[in-house]
Design a protein around this nucleic acid. Structure first.
Lengths: 325, 325
DNA sequence: GTGAAAGCGCTAACAC
DNA sequence: GTGTTAGCGCTTTCAC
């Protein structure tokens, strides 16, 4: 910028005015400055700008895994809202590791992102207190914040799961298996709670071996499913706690002779062609809602932390309507 | 930091030393400083740091659409490599719009990302010349850079497509339809070239109505597919130019009485269960390769721009092995 | 309409 | 071991 000023034979501030399209520059001076900019290939250094202005026009998004088909659309929706507000998106995957989440979040704070959207892996976010006090707006998504009071946008995991399991019961099932994610993940336990609620509503006593929580890697899910589907009194239906589990469950069921009913939480691409009944949550809507909430905060909204819960939808496609074998 | 120094009763530089774990501080002083840091909830301002050091420890990734299942894993792979190098990832979707691509890229440059990975939407990247000269390493992915000399990591679109079409021909097809993305997208024309090569190899004269390029939205693809599959001499097989096209093609075919053979470019989740034969490219490998290349540049590698081409794999699953109806 | 000076928060270089 | 000074590239303030 100094160089541009020298070359154009004007003061530093005049260049700054041109670069930022501020008023108070004669067309002629502006032209001279613009020529110098082009000749030198100058581009404003936003790092310096940020340092002076205090706002970075960027927000951070910490999620579990960008490669998961649920988070892609969510992330994209956040990006669109950010873009509409002239902000860039810094993305990070926690890989469901609380330490890595914290490391990422703090790195983002050190860069002074204006705001933060976090799909938490951990359950204690007190480490964020100083940052929030320092003015970094934060919205938690998909799972609640731990031990601090903050905005959150959630899906109705409990209600959705309850509806899905009730749907299976309505189609005659009583021995229904539930395979979910690790119990320290809030949505996993909420969905399990929904399962128990639906079973209790129908007066069914849940047997321990019908329930399995753990990682969503295919091997684990496969053995859990096979265990439930084997033995003298196998389950006649499965409820899959998220998209990863559903995918493996579909594979396991496809290999078996007897039909097994299935309802999965989260929609999956091509589930329509495979006839998989799902509880769908709109990932893009979740992302958009969270981002809009965040920018409202950044624009000065200072009401008490809010908790938004988005509804889920049961989409019957066949697999959830199969009668017991 | 000034406040921390005052509170701890030490100089500014000592705080800086503690914050950056530099040597040359007594354990006792360090403790006092650490206490002040905790009490004040201090966090280093990386914007200022960046300004001083010249490196931002962040890289930018501009792709078409983060919500596309091909780019999620690619993005995640880039992130992992960045993380290994202590860098954060700033993500942006161009939505296949050259102007938006440029806007994004320049915004990233203004933030002085250390490097840039671009899946180009446009075909003229001369606007990047000053930035590259200024030291921002850049790697183009999936499609070549336009009118500038730069590193690129591509998949073998031509070879993959040729193999897929030859596979259909080997199973007896002669009237084979090709539905691809917009012709201004490099991979789309490369794949079409592969189609033509395979057809020529077999001595088949391609009819105009067997080929359709355009947007990948379901409506467009659907009408293209239906046109090819109708009439007196319908095609007996389809080659789908990318994952979006494949998904719609599968739907269209599923609705028809006569079986239609299908090979798709890009693998899709659950394609195994649906028995869809695909030409698979490893999105994660593409992302990883590009990111590793980028960091090698950042570490000082200054050989001539390289062009890496990754192979594709044909995965037969049934749909590509159907004989002509 | 334009420019000079101060300073955002940090680190490099050097003095103590 | 520790502190002081200068300056990264920009914007803010205020004088011209």
């Amino acid at each position: 910028m100094k160089d541009v000023a020298a070359r154009a034979g004007v003061g530093l501030k005049t260049v700054s005015r041109v670069v930022n399209s501020e008023p108070g520059v004669t067309p002629d001076t502006e032209r001279r400055v613009q020529e110098a900019i082009d000749a030198l290939g100058f581009r404003r250094n936003d790092s310096a700008r940020v340092l002076r202005k205090g706002r970075t026009a960027s927000i951070g998004l910490v999620l579990e895994d960008l490669a998961d088909p649920f988070y892609g659309p969510l992330s994209r929706a956040v990006e669109e809202v950010a873009r509409a507000h002239g902000a860039l998106l810094i993305n990070g995957s926690s890989a469901e590791d609380p330490e890595r989440e914290q490391e990422l979040v703090l790195a983002l704070c050190a860069r002074r992102v204006d705001g933060l959207i976090v799909i938490p892996a951990g359950d204690d976010h007190r480490y964020l207190e100083p940052e929030i006090k320092a003015g970094i707006a934060t919205v938690f998504v998909d799972r609640p914040a731990g031990r601090i009071d903050a905005d959150m946008v959630l899906s109705d995991s409990f209600g959705g799961s309850r509806e899905g399991v009730a749907h299976l019961i309505a189609h005659g099932h009583r021995r229904i298996g539930f395979i979910g994610d690790q119990p320290r993940i809030h949505t996993a336990t909420e969905r399990l709670r929904g399962y128990h609620a639906a079973m209790a509503d129908a007066g069914i006593t849940v047997e321990d071996r019908w329930v399995s929580l753990g990682t969503t890697d295919p091997g684990r899910v496969r053995s859990a499913a096979e265990a439930m589907l084997g033995g003298p009194e196998p389950v006649t239906a499965l409820f899959a706690g998220n998209n990863r589990v559903t995918v493996t469950a579909v594979r396991v069921i496809a290999e078996r002779e007897r039909p097994v009913a299935l309802v999965g939480f989260d929609d999956i691409e091509l589930a329509d062609l495979l006839g998989i009944t799902v509880i769908s949550q709109d990932a893009a809507a979740v992302g958009r809602t969270a981002a809009e909430h965040l920018f409202r905060r950044l624009d000065g909204a200072d009401h008490a932390p809010a908790r938004v819960e988005l509804p889920t939808t049961l989409i019957p496609r066949g697999s959830g309507e199969l009668p017991p074998a």
